[in-house]
Amino acid sequence: MSQDQKHQVLKRKLGPEDLRRFETPAIERESHGQTSAKSSVPDSASTVAVDFAGVTKSYGNKVVVDELSFSVASGECFGLLGPNGAGKSTIARMLLGMTCPDAGAITVLGVPVPARARLARRGIGVVPQFDNLDQELTVRENLLVFGRYFGMSTRQSEAVIPSLLEFARLERKADARVSELSGGMKRCLTMARALINDPQLIVMDEPTTGLDPHARHLIWERLRALLARGKTIILTTHFMEEAERLCDRLCVLEKGRNIAEGGPQALIDEHIGCQVMEIYGGDPHELLSLVKPHSQRIEVSGETLYCYAPDPDQVRTQLQGRAGLRLLLRPANLEDVFLRLTGREMEE
């Protein structure tokens, strides 16, 4: 996508709300000129939780994040959607000040990162892609020790641990070793751990990767509970369904570039805008010529034909009488958007 196109994509989504968002950073920058803000908790009244402006990061010759700009409002669930290698984890690390960008500016909870990352982290909870719980300690000890890393006394941690265990549904496992927990329980404990400092912003890097469907639904439900409490969530995922289900807005990434941004349904309406007919069971290339006149766009993937048709009945009529064909009409989803934008399948 050219730079012009990218600007158009960005321009399209600007509403009154966005404009307000653009005004705030200026005020913030002013207030951060003062060093007196050093000991204060990151600004919670701000409407912008996270702002990336033209952020670039490369390793050697490989550009991982390419002039990325996006902005996350307080209280929203913002998704970073893209295949593995799209730069999602690098973005999460930069947000935490664990990696320095080569160019661009990052503001998190009103403070510049990485310059003041330690202050920003006071208001951030992290649920990483790979469990890094302390295997040698029990569930309770994990929370206690993590509280200490934030400077919390044993008493302070013990005051919040019962509610965290309840949140993670681990009341009965408080004294179990982490190694005795199931994958879903571990992820719940990681979420509880991320809440020990009562963060305003929670960064979740692929929170449900590698979990079974039960655990995945539990995590989704817990995540909703956090949103209901007014937390801001940044979620990276390569599961389209997850993004569609949870995110208020999302940004589609390809090779570290922001190729589309908006609400899931808005993106679907904008880029697809019709139902999708999946046709399989025949020679896709032969079928292609048959249905082409009646479709907005057609894509072939393996033996399946994806037919984006404003009037699916016409397509159905075209294919009537052909034996062995299976037709599936379904609403368009984010995966279709992604295929449309990148012109190829996701690399898993």
Partner: peptide, 14 residues
């Protein structure tokens, strides 16, 4: 392998 340090780096610890 245990990534304990990584978890510490999410916090106030440098």
């Amino acid at each position: 392998s245990q990534r304990t340090w990584e978890a510490m780096l999410y916090t106030h610890v440098t």
